[in-house]
Nucleic acid binder design. Structure first.
Lengths: 207, 207
DNA sequence: CTATGTGAATTTATTCACAGCA
DNA sequence: TGCTGTGAATAAATTCACATAG
C-alpha cells in the first residue's frame, strides 16, 4: 500500500485523528488500538487503519499504535511539525473569535499579525496581537508569515486575497462567503458557514 | 435519472449553486446556462447538470435555466422554502459574529433566540436579539425553533447538545471542536475551523 | 488471541460523450 | 446551432475479509 496516491479524504481526516490522539494522550494513555481511536473520533476502525497504511506501518500487531509516535508522524505528514505563522485580515467579531480560538495552538498555528481598516481598532491589542492598519499589509513580505486568514466582509475579500498573494503568502483560509481567485499554486480553503447550515434542513424530517 | 438515490455530495453543492444564482440574479440575469453557472461557482458544467438531473428537468435545451424557477426549486429540495428559526447558544465572539452574519438570511435562517451564561450579557441586545440566561433553554420547547447553534467552549458543548435534544431540536450546527453525541435521528453538522486550517500546510510546498 | 495491514470487492461520485429537444 | 439530460465509462473512496505479526 506504500506507493499509492493519497486520497484527499484521508488528508481531511488526519487532523481529526490528531485531535482524538491529543485527547487520549491527556487521559494518560500510551497506546491505542484503531478501534478505540475510531470510537473517539467517529470513524470506522478499518478506515483508520487504511488511512495510516498509505504512509507506512504505524502500529504493532496485537498492541495498537503508540500515541506519541503516531501524533508525531501525522504532524510530519501534514507539515505541522514547524510552527506556522498566520496573518489575520479583519478583526471584527469573527476575527476576534479566531484570535481567541484555542484550537489553533494544538496544530502549531499562531496568529502572529492582525490587520483591520477601522482606525478605532488600529493600535489596540486583541489577545496579545496588535492590530495594524491594513495599509501595512505589504510589510508582511519580510515577516515570515506563510498563511493568510481572510475574515473581512464579502466585498473586500478578493482585494485582500490579491494583496496576500502579492506579498507571497502560500495558503489562505477564507471565511468570506464567496469564491476567491488566486494563482493555482496557492491553496485556498474556504469555510462557508451558511452553506453548511443550509443543508441541515434537508436532513430534517418534515418541518 | 429521476428515481435515484441522491448523492450526499450533490446536496452539499446545492447551497453553493443557490449562492451563485442569487449573485447572478442581482446582476439582472433571467436565464443561465450550466456553463455560466459553473464559472461562477467553480464546479464543472456537467457536474451541475448531473446534480440537477437527479431532481427532474430544470432547464430548457438551447436556453438554459430560469434563475428564479431554479432558485425556488433548489430551496424546495433543501427544505429552505420556509423560514427556519435557530437558537444560538453562546454569545461570545463567535456567537456575536454569527448573530451579525448576513449570510444566513439568504437561506431563510433567522437566529431568533440567543442564550449565554454570562450575567453581564444576559438582557443585552446583540443584533436585535435579546440574550437570555442559559437556564431558560428549556423554554425553547414551545418557541418554534427547530435548529440549534452551539458556539460555546468545548467543555460545555455536550451539555448544551443534551439540553437542545431534550427540548426537541431537530438539527444542530456545532462549532465546538469535538464530536457531540445525540440520538441519530438528529442531524449534526460540525464546523471545525482548526481541522480545516490544519490541512492547509499539507498542500503548501516545502515551508 | 489480539489488532494491524492490505488486496479485493463494493459502493459512491465524477467525467465523458452524445442523443435529443428548443 | 446551443444547451440540456443522462446512460455508460472511469475514477475515487469505502468496506470487507483475512493473512500475518506480536
Amino acid at each position: 500500500m506504500r506507493y499509492h496516491k493519497i486520497p484527499n479524504e484521508t488528508i481531511r481526516r488526519l487532523p481529526i485523528y490528531l485531535r482524538g490522539l491529543t485527547l487520549l494522550s491527556q487521559q494518560g494513555l500510551i497506546n491505542i488500538s484503531s478501534s478505540k481511536l475510531a470510537d473517539s473520533v467517529n470513524v470506522n476502525h478499518w478506515q483508520i487503519r487504511k488511512d495510516f497504511s498509505y504512509f507506512g506501518d504505524f502500529g504493532k500487531r496485537g498492541v495498537g499504535y503508540n500515541i506519541e509516535t503516531l501524533t508525531r508522524r501525522i504532524k510530519k505528514i501534514l507539515n505541522l511539525d514547524a510552527v506556522h505563522r498566520a496573518a489575520l485580515v479583519g478583526v471584527g467579531n469573527l476575527g476576534s473569535a479566531l484570535l481567541a480560538y484555542p484550537g489553533f495552538k494544538m496544530y502549531g498555528f499562531e496568529i502572529a499579525v492582525a490587520f483591520d481598516n477601522d482606525p478605532a481598532k488600529i493600535g489596540t491589542k486583541v489577545n496579545n496581537v496588535v492590530v495594524e492598519s491594513i495599509s501595512k499589509l505589504s510589510t508582511l513580505a519580510k515577516r515570515q508569515v506563510d498563511l493568510g486568514i481572510i475574515a473581512v466582509p464579502e466585498q473586500a475579500a478578493q482585494d485582500v486575497a490579491d494583496a496576500l498573494v502579492r506579498v507571497g503568502i502560500k495558503g489562505i483560509l477564507n471565511f468570506a462567503p464567496r469564491r476567491i481567485n488566486v494563482p493555482k499554486k496557492i491553496k485556498v480553503i474556504t469555510i462557508d458557514i451558511a452553506t453548511d447550515l443550509a443543508r441541515l434542513p434537508y436532513y430534517i424530517p418534515s418541518t
